[in-house]
């Protein structure tokens, strides 16, 4: 077994330190070492987007990032999105629009939507669809997800 590396990073505005093997992905670190299980493993090869997090302002599939690569970086995960007393407007919009069924893809979609709205606060429907095309949902047919993101854009 390879020696573990010490990594210091910022997650949801908190400094976090962890040890990880060089082969462990960021997704494994988040879930197995830090118990931040909001990011989900759907495919482990960057096709489904269920593990989406925002790393230094950029939307990434955490299954395609190594844990050791996050040293000195800053990331946002689904667990950091809501305030203690209120949800983020994207989260509210997902609930209002019934934009989730089983909910397994939901954290990934919300993080992708957050990255989109951070970059483009007033997207068109096509831009929303283009931006979210890296996230797979098998339950909803996407209709209500797209509406939720458009609603969230209006609310923010």
């Amino acid at each position: 077994m390879a020696r573990k590396s010490h990594v210091q990073t910022t997650i949801n505005d908190e400094t976090v330190e962890f040890l990880c093997e060089p082969r462990q992905s960021l997704l494994e670190v988040l879930r197995d070492e830090l118990h931040l299980t909001g990011a989900k493993e759907g495919c482990n090869n960057g096709n489904c987007g269920a593990c989406s997090v925002i790393l230094d302002g950029r939307l990434v599939n955490s299954c395609l990032v190594l844990g050791v690569e996050t040293d000195g970086k800053s990331m946002e995960t689904i667990e950091g999105l809501a305030d203690p007393d209120k949800l983020h407007p994207i989260q509210d919009a997902f609930l209002e629009n019934a934009a989730l069924q089983c909910g397994i893809c939901t954290p990934g979609f919300i993080m992708s939507a957050k990255a989109l709205l951070d970059n483009n606060p007033n997207p068109t429907e096509h831009e929303v669809r283009y931006w979210l095309a890296g996230n797979l949902c098998r339950c909803t047919g996407y209709d209500k997800i797209v509406r939720a993101v458009l609603d969230a854009a209006e609310a923010t």
């Binding site: 879930r31 118990h35 931040l36 299980t37 909001g38 990011a39 989900k40 493993e41 995960t77 689904i78 667990e79 999105l81 809501a82 949800l87 989260q91 997902f94 609930l95 209002e96 019934a98 989730l100 909910g103 397994i104 939901t106 954290p107 919300i110």
Partner: peptide, 23 residues
């Protein structure tokens, strides 16, 4: 009517525990 689903908040905040999340 269209109320907010009861498990909704857990599922939009990443707190809901799915099978693989169990420790």
């Amino acid at each position: 009517t269209r109320p907010i689903r009861h498990d909704g908040v857990d599922k939009v905040t990443g707190r809901a525990i799915y099978g693989a999340d169990f420790q």
